[in-house]
Simulated scan of single mutants.
Amino acid sequence: MGSATKRSKYFRSVLFVPATRPDRYEKAMASGADIACVDLENAVSLEDKDTAREQVVNFFTGEDIIPTQRALRINQLDSDCGIKDMLMLLDLQQLPDVVILPKVQSAEEVIGFCQVMAPSHKAIRIIALIESPKGLENALSIAQVEEVVCLAFGAADYSATVGSDMSWDALLYGRGRLVQAAAFAGIDAVDGPYLELDDERSLIEETQRVSALGFSGKIAIHPKQIKPIHQGLAPSSEALSHAQRVLKAYKENHGGVLVVDGQMVDMPVVERALKTVAASKGL
């Protein structure tokens, strides 16, 4: 099993940008997203894959003073394009901070990818996109692969496969299973994108709801979604104030029964308060 040390505050927002638009790469880096992901998969047509692959290479060289991580989503591992993407990665002098693997269905395919990379790149960090019933069924073992630092929910592909709509109720089971698998392995879970670009209020509300489920972040498909996502992940002033009172009371307690705001306080309540305060500092 993984450990809690694999969790990170830097999986709040993952902004996708098409690999065919190098003019947007630096804009994505300056968007405020925790991760700027160049996408070789869904955002690139089949006839443009080779050109896109050539354009992304220079994006991963050098260092930045800003904390945004650079990521690359490659194509499905068992496809011709996925194989070409792996060959490109093998030739890179410097890997992306994170490699996003789409349509992951088993731990074995992730392990196989890491074994292919090992001769050139032993240290690799992976976000595994869970987008199918099989992937969801195997999410627990996928999450425990050492190189996997985060699971992400591909809600659109998942709903298409199971034949559901994308309403909250229809996706609740999938989201819950994915969060549970990530929590068991001590890694983060990122929710899929909200597809309505001009509905900021609903984006905030959905982000608040997935945060309450246990997700640490959300995928963004436009820079203007970053701020609402971070806002939705931030604890409310009431929740933060309560957490601070819990921690203050716990620190001052000398072994007696501890009650804060009419609520019995035990260690899980204290741990939740610690997470709330920590989240407020990072958002």
Rank of each mutant, 00 (worst) to 15 (best):
K9D: 10
K9S: 13
K9T: 11
K9E: 10
Y10R: 15
Y10A: 11
F11L: 07
F11A: 01
R12M: 04
S13C: 01
V14F: 03
V14G: 00
L15S: 00
V17T: 15
V17W: 02
P18N: 05
A19L: 10
A19I: 12
T20L: 12
R21Q: 13
P22E: 10
D23L: 06
D23F: 06
R24A: 05
Y25H: 13
Y25F: 15
Y25Q: 02
Y25W: 13
E26L: 12
K27P: 06
K27F: 01
K27V: 05
K27W: 04
A28M: 06
A28P: 01
A28T: 00
M29P: 08
M29K: 03
M29S: 12
M29G: 10
A30R: 14
S31N: 01
G32K: 03
A33H: 02
A33Y: 04
A33W: 04
D34K: 00
D34M: 02
I35P: 05
I35M: 08
A36K: 00
A36V: 06
C37F: 01
V38T: 04
D39K: 01
D39Q: 02
L40Q: 07
E41S: 04
E41A: 03
E41W: 06
N42W: 00
N42H: 12
N42K: 08
N42I: 08
A43Q: 03
A43T: 07
V44T: 13
V44D: 11
V44C: 05
S45N: 12
S45V: 12
S45Y: 02
L46R: 14
E47W: 10
E47Y: 13
D48I: 09
K49P: 09
K49R: 14
K49S: 08
D50G: 08
D50E: 15
T51G: 14
T51D: 15
T51Y: 11
T51N: 14
A52G: 15
R53W: 02
R53F: 09
R53M: 12
E54T: 08
E54F: 06
E54N: 12
E54H: 08
